[in-house]
Amino acid sequence: MNRIVPAPVDRETNDRLALAGAIAWPSFFAAGVATMVFFALIDPDELFNAAWPHILLPREFAYTLGFFVFWTATLGASSFTALLLRRPKDAQP
């Protein structure tokens, strides 16, 4: 019987994609939770009033900014973990 078999994807692309996903997704999730907890306890309006009263920032922007600040931090941590866990032979070309 003649079966149609899809062509394999090149391995390096696949590996890199999988690693990027493993770094991006948990850090995204952690940043989401951190953002929720942080802004549930702290009203950005009050925070900015107390800290930088001359800056006028709508809450939506503050939430968005807060999320990406958190994500930068968690993404950094995840990336470092990935880097440190890399086996020596993976680093070779």
């Binding site: 078999v5 062509a7 394999p8 391995r11 590996d15 999988a18 690693l19």
Partner: peptide
Amino acid sequence: KLVLVDDSLYAAQAKI
């Protein structure tokens, strides 16, 4: 015909 790849963390995979 599943393509198995040595001890890489992730196996190479044909598009599904």
